[in-house]
């Protein structure tokens, strides 16, 4: 498993595509951070006149992390599409199946290689916050919690992408399926406002409706620091589900007619 993990990780770090994608991601994130900081400075000056300073965590960091998550929906499908589809296309997957490794090892190795690549990208996206912390006090526990949420969200998207990539030998198809599913999960939270109340309100008093299936909804709980177990369970269960499905797809060569 370690061999495949290392091979895939080095394939990521040797790939021009990955560097271009990371650069684009960080560039857009940095741009958004700059705009938001300017916004925050403006509004805190106005607030200062009214005797009320906005909270930097709520107004700036939370929004920045929301954007980091939102941008991942567009970035990650392009990162994961080649994982299995490319190996299928050139045939190395057949070779891999004749090595003494099982399907779970292949899937997990690729999953973690991909996740680690995303994590190193997210680590770089921390830099503006480090810079900011030199100017003003930040609640690092909240920042950490937000990033924890981002990593969990990334793992869900990577698992979905990995599964999509196992379905065919075409990277384009893999990317399309991942985009479709990621968009669907994102738009879930909008359903609340469209569907009749009966459907959107769950059972019991404090339960939320169908909007809780939204992939960005849970990210907010992490960034605000008021997360509960179901936020973690949401990401982990989706991740495990899609990893399991990927293994089943790889397994299917044994019985498919």
């Amino acid at each position: 498993m370690l061999a495949i993990f290392r091979r895939d990780l080095s394939a990521y770090f040797n790939s021009v595509t990955v560097w271009v994608l990371s650069a684009a991601y960080l560039f857009v994130a940095g741009l958004i951070f700059t705009l938001m900081t300017k916004n925050y400075v403006d509004s805190s000056m106005m607030g200062g006149m009214n005797g009320r300073t906005p909270n930097i965590m709520d107004e700036l960091v939370l929004g920045y992390q929301w954007w980091l998550g939102f941008l991942m929906i567009f970035l990650l499908p392009m990162l994961t599409m080649r994982l299995l589809a490319e190996e299928k296309r050139i045939g190395t997957l057949e070779l891999l199946f004749t090595y003494p490794v099982n399907e779970w090892e292949i899937v997990l190795a690729k999953f973690f290689a991909s996740l680690l690549t995303v994590i190193s990208m997210l680590a770089l996206s921390c830099l503006p916050l480090v810079y900011l912390s030199g100017k003003t006090a930040l609640d690092w526990r909240l920042v950490g919690s937000g990033y924890g949420g981002l990593v969990l969200m990334a793992s869900t998207l990577v698992a979905i992408g990995l599964w999509a990539s196992s379905l065919s030998a075409s990277q384009v198809i893999a990317a399309c399926i991942t985009y479709g599913l990621a968009m669907m999960l994102w738009l879930m939270q909008l359903l609340d406002s469209f569907l009749p109340e009966k459907l959107t309100q769950g059972f019991g008093d404090d339960s939320k409706g169908i909007g809780t299936l939204g992939i960005m909804t849970h990210l907010e709980s992490f960034a605000r620091g008021n997360l509960s177990s179901h936020d973690i369970v949401y990401y982990l269960s989706l991740t495990l589900l899609f990893l399991f499905l990927t293994v089943r797809v790889l397994d299917s060569r044994k019985w498919r007619m």
């Binding site: 091979r7 045939g91 070779l95």
Partner: peptide, 24 residues
């Protein structure tokens, strides 16, 4: 296998090293 599947972005030394590692 018939079509000789190889990772084009690796060198022979890297690829054979990967095979050795993966084969235990």
């Amino acid at each position: 296998p018939e079509l000789v599947p190889l990772h084009p972005e690796m060198t022979p030394r890297e690829f054979v090293g990967f095979a050795a590692h993966a084969k235990g």
